[in-house]
Nucleic acid binder design. Structure first.
Length: 418
RNA sequence: CGGAGCGUAGCAUAGUGGUUUAAUGCGCUGCCUUCGGGAGGCAGAGAACGUGGGUUCAAAUCCCACCGCUCCGACCA
């Protein structure tokens, strides 16, 4: 992608009242733009990151054996009345009426629909287990949206639902999902704590949250210094010593990037979702549900992966892998050589399927290009200038490093592939 | 929903009753210079001062209502 063609307008100054680092940097780098409180547009650069996160999640879900589907956001009141959540979940349920004055909700989560769908398709132990997931827009009428992407009212979420014969089987799957979540978060540049949590209005008998330690986090968690046991203070209160080993509990602020629930038969009961076992006995299907908010994950990654100059994207979710930056020269002949070489490197990288953003903008000073590059946070910067050309080289610098190194133009692909 | 604050050009801010024909910086357009860390000069374009009402000889400025945004609280997968 040529930067001159990209819809991108980085900003030097933003409102002083925006305090959260990820909020500041994502706006300054022109990844997102606010439309209303807690409602954001994803601009081309931001959408590339979001899609990369989605791709990672989808891969891991498929590894788990889950199947992708897509459920409606607009749902009739009756569905929500069945589980009493029409009342219980208000807030944050978004409610509206159609032209015939019928009540609808914009779904904040999808246990109701999925259980109803399963109820029409699951009859026998032969139909179990099943796991389905979607990446879909959720609506939550929060009392207050906060911190840019950290708490939105409309946001993209991956929700996974699992159906099982027994609690034992369901918990086994629950543990598999936990591992899968750790993989997802690691690939997004995060190493969250796993903590015990309360189930809230989702319900169920067991739940864990994935918590990224950050001063911007709204959640308070306690982590045992000795055995690593963790819990949300919302669940256990402000205890001093670990329930497991009596070790000292340490208090941290954290961002909840994922939440897993064992629902047991809470929803199966509401929708009469039963299956026949081998012996003909009918029992309620045991369910689990598992969520990851994509934009929040993106913001959490920025909270952890940034410095004073800007974002430092982890490679897997970066909008581009390489930022190619020619530095103009006053000498006409050399300037032509720089352009020619940059074009050549650009095309060579593209041919090798390396995602590259080419800063082909004219009349920009080196300082401005570097400042933009640091802000946008593409992992690898490749500079071509009079200085590097004199050595038939480019300067390659990782965003997270201070110093770059010269690499011969001929060897650049080999170097980058490695 | 309770408390506090804010709303002035694409962005960030100053101006808080009277030479204000609303200012400054960034960004934008043109010309010149500059070119390895957000360069400089000259010339320009760009604003119903959130909306509506009120007070006053006079309102961006004071008052009221509404709308919107931020923060704290409550709330919350």
């Amino acid at each position: 992608m040529k930067q001159s063609q990209l819809l991108l307008s980085t900003k030097k100054a933003i409102k002083s009242k925006i305090e959260i680092a990820s909020h500041q940097l994502l706006i300054r780098g022109d990844f997102i733009e606010e439309l209303a409180a807690g409602i954001y547009s994803f601009l081309p650069l931001g959408f590339l990151v979001l899609k990369n996160i989605e791709k990672i999640i989808r891969e891991e879900m498929i590894n788990l054996g889950a199947q992708e589907l897509f459920l409606p956001a607009l749902q009739p009141k009756e569905l929500w009345a069945k589980t009493t959540r029409w009342k219980k979940m208000d807030p944050p349920l978004f409610k509206l009426k159609d032209r015939h004055q019928k009540d609808f909700a914009l779904a904040p989560t999808h246990e109701e629909v999925i259980t109803q769908i399963a109820q029409k398709r699951i009859y026998s132990f032969r139909d179990l287990p099943k796991a389905v997931f979607q990446v879909q827009t959720k609506f939550r009428n929060e009392m207050r949206a906060t911190g840019g992407l950290l708490r939105q009212r409309e946001f993209l979420m991956k929700d996974l639902y699992s159906l099982h014969q027994t609690e034992k089987e369901a918990i086994l799957f629950y543990e598999k999902v936990k591992n899968s979540y750790f993989k997802i978060f690691r690939r997004c540049g995060l190493s969250p704590f796993l903590v015990e949590a309360s189930s809230g209005t989702i319900g169920g008998t067991l739940s864990h949250e994935f918590m990224v330690e950050s001063p911007s986090g709204e959640d308070r968690i306690l982590i045992c210094k000795k055995c690593g046991f963790g819990a949300n203070m919302e669940k256990i209160g402000n205890i001093k010593n670990c329930q497991k080993c009596k070790g000292r509990m340490e208090r941290k602020n954290a961002i909840e990037v994922g939440h897993v629930f064992y629902l047991s038969d809470k929803y199966s009961k509401s929708f009469n979702l039963k299956f026949s076992a081998k012996d003909g006995q009918k029992s309620y299907v045991k369910m689990g549900c598992f969520g990851i908010g994509l934009p929040r994950l993106m913001a959490a990654s920025v909270e952890i992966n940034h410095d004073e100059r800007g974002i430092v994207w982890p490679k897997e979710i970066a909008p581009f892998l390489v930022h190619l930056i020619p530095i103009p020269s006053k000498n006409n002949a050399i300037q032509k050589e720089i352009e020619k070489t940059s074009d050549f490197v650009y095309h060579t990288l593209q041919k090798s399927k390396i995602n590259v953003l080419y800063d082909d903008r004219k009349n920009r000073t080196p300082g401005e290009k570097f400042a933009d590059a640091d802000l946008i946070g593409i992992p690898i910067r490749v500079v071509i200038s009079e200085k590097t050309l004199s050595k038939e080289s480019t300067e390659i610098k990782e965003r997270k490093e201070k110093e770059g190194k010269l690499v011969k133009i001929k060897k650049i692909i080999n170097f980058l592939v490695k």
